[in-house]
Write a protein that binds this DNA or RNA. Structure first.
Length: 620
RNA sequence: GGGGGCGUAGCUCAAUUGGUUAGAGUACCGGACUGUCGAUCCGGUGGUUGCGGGUUCGAUUCCCGUCGCCCUCGCCA
């Protein structure tokens, strides 16, 4: 961990800081941190404060590892050392893990054979002259070690102890540096940090809302924001021009490793812009954040894909660009094929695509390929055609259809060389993309091409505006209700609905969608038309978004923005599996806070005051 | 809402086909030790096997229910 610049605890008060110079430092207070002392402090008298991480007793000699946020320093308490205060040795003998102490002592350079090379402070040690106990600790429910030993349930219950562990300290520090860098970068680009309401209004569709009953409006409820979407657009109407917020968002849906009921977004919006303005700005912000927060240098520029292009090449709308292995269209080859499966799929209006896994032929046995086949079967594909490229042609399930010239043509089309493994799926386009998109990630992972220390970003633009909702049997927004269509002059959304594109874009890193935004509709007539097409009545529009629609009547500027998921970005940058490890106080997958025991019951008086009653069968 | 996994000492785990007094490491407590750095050595305390019920002569083990945690599908405009 790169230590943050430590405070100058021992710095003399500067000129003009009268109040500060009047303030006396208490004798127990630290002069340095536990990560700070080096050989250059040799022979200095210092004071350290911290937690006892470990203690080693040798009779008349005791070693303590003293820990704070900045590091660990070895303290030596020597019964026979000159200047050791009376009673100190007996005090230290009784101390144990996690006791909080102040140590007065002198910095000593260690002999060469006693240097601990694993620590930045390993060349020195603090020879104690006196030790003051600031706080005694009970034996903690689990040991505070770098390596996770306790299970997550216990760690969440005692989160304040888990947070003492270095991996979590590192996550908190880097996350804070990341957010600070983002703030600095946005501020330098003219963005205003503007707070929007936490107590706001429920809107239909979208995720379930968290609700807060109103005491003074009995029977009415606030909703916690799923995002500040409408308010940031209102900021644009207000002429604030450039808004941002590190915003907490709330969604009451079932959770996953990468989802918490409350999560943090970098939310921003800009006026008088088009896509490339937003993308350029965000790209610079992300680059600055990841560099300053995590020391990650992202290759620029981030490739920008059209949605259709991403789907065609990678089979998904969030391509992992850490490796190539694109989907290669073989439909025309397949049409002329003697292989009935290929030919048949094309005749039925389907497509055939393939992957070329470089040098993977040897790594996949018959059994390994059977597993891949089962994998794509689970994704809706009827089968997986495969071939290993040899110096003389191909072998495998489709070899007898691709002997001789047909085989040579296929190999050339796939850009393959001997030793490569070719994998094909023939089906309707949607199935092929889904199966091969996921297969690409699986095979790429098995070949070690998804290195967690490599970071590749991209943009995907021009998403479909609407998607068909099977259960509800109607069209709905693919992105959000305010995204503008690519063609502003569009008159009838009922025409060729599936192919209408919106000016929505996603930010993608290593195959994770980390942000989503769009150029918004800023003209009320068009907004009304979109709502009308989706069957949202003027009454419903009024009830839900009336104030936004009203606002546009008074001159809304063209504008657009994005929201980036902070928790996911930090987790990805740190190579953590889920986002709980980068959130100081997370909740379980049942949205329960094991430490605070929230949510909890409330008194009948509180309920009465709010004029609400619970219908729960098992209260509390 | 569906599927899967887990729950035994403070912690991490073990316990043969259902069998005798539920073990180990670690932590903790006591002792020895002046150069350790996950110190070492000796000794010790520590158990409602998540909870409730059932089958059985006998249940950590099998069955049912329930609670909690994790993963996942649905869901998250």
């Amino acid at each position: 961990m790169t230590p943050a610049a430590p405070h100058r605890w021992n710095a003399p008060a500067g000129a003009g800081t009268t109040a500060r110079s009047m303030k006396q430092r208490a004798t127990w207070q630290r002069t340095h941190t536990c990560g700070e002392l080096t050989i250059s402090h040799r022979d200095q008298a210092v004071v350290l404060n911290g937690w006892i991480e470990n203690h080693r007793h040798h009779g008349q000699l005791i070693f303590l590892d003293l820990r704070d946020r900045y590091g660990v320093t070895q303290v030596v308490v020597d019964q026979e050392a000159a200047g050791l205060a009376a009673g100190t040795f007996d005090t230290v003998r009784r101390l144990g893990a996690e006791d909080v102490i102040a140590v007065h002592g002198k910095v000593r350079a260690r002999d060469a054979d006693k240097v601990n090379k694993n620590r930045s402070t390993g060349a020195i040690e603090l020879v104690a002259t006196s030790v003051t106990v600031l706080s005694e600790a009970e034996t903690p429910p689990f040991e505070i070690l770098d390596k996770v030993e306790a299970n997550e349930e216990l760690r969440m219950q005692y989160r304040y102890l888990d947070l003492r562990r270095r991996p979590l300290q590192e996550a908190m520090q880097k996350r804070a540096r990341f957010v600070t860098a983002i703030r600095n970068h946005l501020a330098a680009n003219g963005f205003l940090d503007i707070e929007t309401p936490i107590l706001t209004k429920s809107t239909p569709e979208g995720a379930r809302d968290y609700l807060v009953p109103s005491r003074v409006h009995p029977g009415k409820f606030f909703a916690l924001p799923q995002s500040p979407q409408i308010f940031k657009q209102l900021c644009m109407v207000a002429g604030l021009d450039r808004y941002y917020q590190i915003a907490r968002c709330f969604r009451d849906e079932d959770l996953r490793a990468d989802r918490q009921p409350e999560f943090t977004q970098i939310d921003l919006e800009m006026s008088f812009v088009e896509e490339h303005d937003v993308l350029d700005l965000v790209e610079g912000t992300v680059v600055a954040g990841l560099r300053e927060g995590f020391g990650i240098d992202l290759p620029q520029p981030f490739p920008r894909f059209d949605y259709e292009e991403a789907m065609a090449q990678y089979g998904c709308d969030k391509p992992d660009l850490r490796f190539d292995m694109k989907l290669i269209d073989c439909t025309e080859l397949a049409r002329r094929s003697s292989f009935k499966v290929f030919q048949g799929a094309v005749e039925l209006g389907g497509i055939v695509k393939g992957l070329c896994a470089k040098g993977a032929a040897e790594q996949f046995s018959r059994k390994g390929i059977d597993e891949l086949t089962a994998f794509v079967n689970g994704l809706g594909a009827k089968g997986l055609a495969w071939a290993k490229v040899t110096p003389t042609g191909v072998e495998g399930s489709i070899a007898r259809f691709y002997a001789g010239e047909a085989g040579a043509e296929l190999i050339a089309h796939m850009g393959a060389v001997p030793g490569d493994l070719l994998l094909f799926v023939a089906d309707q386009k949607k199935v092929v993309h889904r199966a091969l998109g996921d297969l690409r990630l699986k095979v790429g992972g098995m070949l070690g091409l998804r290195d967690a220390s490599v970071f590749r970003c991209c943009w995907v633009l021009n998403f479909p505006m609407f998607e068909w909702h099977e259960e509800k049997a109607r069209w709905q927004f693919a992105h959000n209700p305010f995204s503008a269509p690519v063609d502003w002059s569009i008159d009838d959304f009922g025409q060729d609905t599936a192919n209408i594109r919106s000016r929505a874009y996603d930010f993608v890193m290593n195959g994770w969608e980390l942000g989503s935004g769009s150029i918004r509709i800023h003209r009320p007539a068009l907004q009304a038309k979109v709502f009308e097409f989706l069957g949202i009545t003027p009454e419903q529009q009024r009830a839900n978004f009336g104030f936004l629609l009203d606002a546009y009547k008074y001159g809304g500027p063209p504008h657009g923005g994005i929201a980036l998921g902070v928790d996911r970005m930090v987790a990805l940058a740190l190579g953590r599996e889920g986002i709980r490890d980068v959130i100081a106080f997370p909740k379980t997958s049942m949205a329960f806070d094991l430490m605070a025991e929230a949510p909890g019951g409330v008194s009948p008086e509180q309920m009465a005051e709010l004029q609400i009653a619970s219908t729960a069968k098992k209260p509390g």
